[in-house]
């Protein structure tokens, strides 16, 4: 059986020039290898600046990788073919507030991917938007609302609805829970797990919260300075961490939980 998403030797080099006389700053990512199956969850954890968000951007096609391949169901994804990619891999942003256009209604925000990527009639599109809104626990009336009328948790649900509306196979989320308060956070986590069970989605998310990672994910990828230093089943990593950095992380988490 081929994996839903397989990443092979993915690399990215970012050179930042800072003026004429300073040495340009280089950031190397990877090579990174991992794969997930349908219905599985992969968590990416690591320091700030370790390249987690960059990896997410590479997966959804916001940045162009320098090398390596991304295979979806065994098929190679090309950077320029954004249609092929966005029908299958969708992104949920960290700051739901900034990822929604303030001047157009939420309904048209969710409808836009349908307009661009499908041949549905306007009525069918509206039906789909309504259905997606109730899927994420909002009401069909919310499509007349504007961004500023909703709370943070509701905005995150809208972000999720925009990702779900194209019936993707994989959702990539960049710290989707970071800006939410604990109760809304657990609501959102449960919502995503429920949707994943129902739709058989592959879910890749970045998080700093090891509790959520342990609760949600099947596999974990730990990153440091652009390298994937450890990857494996979440249970294994939390019980028998191999790498020194991972051991520190897990120990810190265990002392916090047991205290």
């Amino acid at each position: 059986m081929t994996a839903l998403l397989a990443v092979e030797d993915l690399t990215f080099t970012d050179v930042k020039t800072q003026g004429w006389f300073k040495r340009p700053e280089k950031f190397n990512l990877g090579p990174i290898n991992f794969s997930i199956n349908a219905g599985e969850t992969l968590a990416i954890i690591g320091d700030n600046g370790s390249g987690k968000s960059l990896l997410a951007k590479l997966l959804v096609g916001a940045e162009k990788p320098s090398g390596g391949t991304i295979l979806l169901n065994g098929q190679k994804l090309h950077y320029n073919n954004i249609k092929q990619r966005c029908l299958n891999i969708r992104m949920v942003f960290q700051h739901s507030n900034e990822s929604l256009n303030p001047s157009i209604t939420l309904g048209s925000i969710i409808e836009e991917p349908l307009k661009l990527n499908t041949d549905l009639e306007p009525e069918a599109r509206e039906e789909k938007v309504k259905q997606t809104l109730s899927q994420v626990g909002l009401m069909p009336e919310h499509r007349f609302f504007y961004r500023h009328m909703l709370s943070d948790g509701q905005r995150q649900r809208i972000g999720l609805a925009r990702a779900l509306v194209l019936d993707p196979q994989i959702i990539v989320a960049d710290e989707p829970f970071a800006a939410l308060d604990p109760s809304v956070r657990s609501q959102t986590v449960n919502l995503i797990m429920k949707l994943q069970r129902e739709l058989g989605l592959g879910f890749i998310f970045i998080s700093h919260n090891l509790g959520i990672v342990r609760h949600v994910s099947d596999r974990t990828l730990i990153m440091q300075d652009g390298m994937a230093i450890e990857t494996g089943k979440t249970d294994v990593i939390f019980n028998w961490p191999k790498n020194e950095y991972t051991q520190k992380l897990v120990n810190a988490y265990q002392t916090m939980v047991n205290a």
Binding site: G61, A62, C86, E112, P113, L116
Partner: peptide, 8 residues
Amino acid sequence: LAARLDGA
């Protein structure tokens, strides 16, 4: 960026 990823 979100709209760009939608294929706009």
